[in-house]
Simulated scan of single mutants.
Amino acid sequence: MRYLTRQFAIGALRRGNGIEQFLGGVEISGERAIRWVAISPMNRQYRVSLHTVQDPDDERVGDLPNLLSLDPTDEAYVGEGRELARSGDAEEAMALAEHLTDADPQRWVNHAVAGEEYMDYVRSRRSTTQAP
């Protein structure tokens, strides 16, 4: 099981490890895109960031931060995402992320695992379109 319990997610943040959540697909100016939210420990705070990148529609692509950003404010810092909030408390950072992005409290994963969620998303999208 890849999802973290709330306590494990908070523990990961407090140990200095990031967590993230794949939010799904969106359309930006007629182009297919995907989003995910990340919480990263930095300088005794927790940074909440939203990432909006081009959807390559490739189930072999799992390194999401290296995809082309479709968020103009993100272009100067590839892979950093748009900062939505900062907090000195891990639980508050999670609550902020969930509130600001509609993230599901039950679907947090360790850093770099949202790419696996994306690959599952592509596979499920393809199986839906290929069904008779």
Rank of each mutant, 00 (worst) to 15 (best):
R2C: 02
R2E: 14
Y3H: 13
T5I: 01
R6P: 00
F8W: 00
I10F: 00
I10C: 02
I10T: 13
I10S: 01
A12I: 00
A12E: 04
L13K: 07
R14T: 06
R15D: 13
R15H: 09
G16A: 08
G16Q: 08
E20Q: 12
G24Q: 11
G25S: 15
V26Q: 12
E27M: 13
E27L: 10
I28W: 09
S29E: 15
G30Y: 08
E31N: 12
R32A: 15
R32F: 06
I34Y: 06
R35V: 02
W36R: 05
V37F: 03
A38K: 11
A38N: 04
M42R: 14
M42A: 10
M42Q: 13
N43F: 08
N43I: 01
Q45N: 04
S49E: 06
L50R: 03
L50W: 06
L50D: 03
L50H: 06
H51L: 14
V53G: 08
Q54N: 10
D55S: 11
D57S: 12
D58A: 14
E59Y: 07
E59K: 12
R60Y: 11
V61H: 05
L64F: 04
L64H: 08
L64R: 08
P65H: 08
N66D: 12
L67Y: 05
D71N: 14
D74F: 01
E75Y: 07
A76Q: 12
Y77I: 01
Y77K: 12
V78T: 07
G79W: 04
E80A: 10
G81V: 06
R82L: 10
R82C: 03
R82F: 02
R82H: 12
A85M: 05
A85C: 05
E92I: 07
A95H: 03
A97Q: 00
L100K: 02
T101W: 01
A103C: 02
R107L: 14
R107W: 02
N110S: 09
N110M: 10
N110W: 03
N110Y: 11
H111A: 11
H111G: 01
A112T: 12
A114N: 06
E116G: 13
E116N: 13
Y118E: 10
Y118P: 01
M119N: 06
M119Q: 15
D120Y: 08
Y121L: 09
V122L: 10
S124G: 00
S127P: 00
T129K: 14
A131L: 12
